[in-house]
């Protein structure tokens, strides 16, 4: 049984100004899959996500989301198609309350229609968001903000959840908790996820497939078990 392709990037080159950060990137996400993109700082992981979301316009290549040619869709319309981007560094709306942040997550039609049920689910996954729903997001701790950012993404009832470094700047215990939740969410809701991570172990452990990005190019891809034993990953991070 082969699952249908949900998102497909073909030979994407993209960057800021004249220099391409991403060079010839091809990535595929199947329905219900969790794929990881790992790589050191500056490899172009965030640029990759921004290209999918439409903040960065690629200089060449194609992106297809189901049957849609995504590059022909304006950035702010892409969320309406079913893409939810949980950006690097969380980027919650600090002057909005938790509840308002979640409402904004549900800005697109689908999320709005299913907001009540989604809200319950989000609160059951991240109870702290329910307890403090009237608190301003800017006053939350880093870990809570990350949970809110993920909750905000889930509130859209998305087809694809794009997670950009959910572990960034968080204490190990909190990272463990967040990853545990993510896996639970992925398994119970069969949500398709693209995870960009610097913590290779977790990123590989949970993924169906993974890509290794270095200096804007995909240097390795495959099953996590294969990658885990590849010396190049250990070397990329620890130099040993």
């Amino acid at each position: 049984m082969t699952k249908p392709v949900l998102l497909q990037l073909d030979n994407i080159c993209a960057g800021y100004g004249e220099i391409d950060v991403l060079q010839d990137i091809s990535i595929k996400l199947l329905e219900g899959e969790l794929i990881s993109v790992v790589g050191p700082n500056g490899a172009g992981k965030t640029t990759l996500f921004k290209t999918i979301s439409g903040i960065v316009t690629p200089s060449s290549g194609q992106i297809h989301f189901r049957e849609n040619d995504l590059l022909g869709v304006e950035a702010s319309r892409r969320a309406h198609l079913g893409l939810a981007h949980v950006p690097e560094g969380r980027q919650v709306f600090p002057s909005l309350t938790i509840l308002e942040n979640l409402e904004m997550g549900a800005f697109a039609e689908k999320g709005r229609a299913e907001f009540k049920e989604n809200l319950e689910k989000i609160i059951s996954w991240f109870p702290v968001l329910g307890e403090r729903r009237e608190q301003l997001a800017g006053t939350l701790s880093g870990g809570e903000q990350q949970m809110l950012a993920i909750g905000r993404g889930l509130a859209a009832s998305p087809d694809i959840l794009m997670l950009d470094e959910p572990s960034m700047g968080l204490a190990p215990a909190i990272v463990d908790e967040i990853f545990e939740r993510l896996i639970e969410i992925h398994r119970t809701s069969e949500l398709s996820v693209i995870l960009v991570e610097q913590r290779v172990a977790e990123a590989l452990h949970f993924a169906n497939r993974a890509y290794v990005l270095e200096a804007g190019k995909i240097i390795l891809s495959g099953k996590p078990e294969e990658l885990q034993n590849d010396d190049r990953i250990r070397q990329a991070y620890l130099g040993m």
């Binding site: 979301s53 969320a79 709306f93 909005l96 697109a108 859209a156």
Partner: peptide, 19 residues
């Protein structure tokens, strides 16, 4: 709320589908 979200973080607002 969508205006305030756009004020707080325009990029993130776009990710939410706000024009």
């Amino acid at each position: 709320k969508s205006l305030r979200a756009s004020a707080d973080n325009p990029d993130a607002a776009i990710y939410m589908g706000i024009n």
